[in-house]
């Protein structure tokens, strides 16, 4: 591992270390760490999803290329924060039977499903998996989109707090909209013909 990557991972792990320390010292209960772990997971997903559409819109530059080059790390970190979220859930619930019993509640199964959807891209995040899966790799990585939406749904259903969830959706909607506009501008003829299905 190059040292810049080690520094990046130290930075990514720092909030998690603080949370684990707060739990172990008895300063925070497991249930109080649901929110910070979930929020970090979502924000890292957003950070991983932003550079692609930004490059499509504004073209490549040093900053965006650098951002793109750490995208896989951001995605894996998002998964690890989701895993930590799950660990605190298990520590809070204690009983497997209680966890199974509440799985039918929408706020809970959306969370499990989001985790499952994120598990796949995280599991194939290695260079080797990337090489062996070829074009399928990119398709499987796109599971992060449903994972993200399910995670937002999970958050909404748990607390019914609309504003912060919408705030987290906003940057992605903004860049997707920008990309759409950029694609239409640069390719007006193609765009006009695309919707026509074969007659």
């Amino acid at each position: 591992m190059h040292w810049p990557r080690a520094v990046l991972w130290l930075l990514l792990a720092f909030p998690a270390m603080l949370m684990v320390e707060r739990y172990l010292s008895g300063e925070a209960l497991a249930l109080e760490l649901y929110h910070p772990t979930g929020e970090w997971s979502l924000r890292l997903m957003i950070a991983a999803l932003l550079p692609g559409p930004l490059i499509d819109t504004f073209g490549s530059n040093r900053l965006l290329r650098g951002w793109l080059s750490i995208r896989r790390n951001l995605g894996v970190a998002a998964f690890l924060y989701a895993l930590l979220h799950l660990v605190f859930y298990v520590l809070d619930m204690r009983l497997i039977s209680a966890m199974v019993e509440e799985m039918a509640i929408p706020a809970i199964w959306t969370g499990w499903l989001a985790f499952a959807a994120l598990l796949v891209p995280a599991a194939i995040s290695t260079d080797r998996a990337m090489r062996s899966l070829g074009s399928r790799w990119k398709r499987l990585q796109r599971l992060v989109y449903p994972a993200f939406i399910l995670a937002i749904g999970h958050w909404l259903l748990i607390g019914w707090d609309w504003l912060p969830a919408l705030v987290h959706l906003a940057p992605l909607f903004a860049v997707w909209l920008l990309r759409l506009i950029a694609v239409r501008r640069s390719n007006p003829v193609k765009e006009q013909t695309r919707p026509c299905a074969p007659h």
Partner: peptide, 15 residues
């Protein structure tokens, strides 16, 4: 996801 949620009571705990 949102439709499923709509079936539940929509009051924020903080409210």
């Amino acid at each position: 996801v949102l439709c499923v949620g709509m079936g539940s009571p929509a009051s924020a705990d903080g409210d």
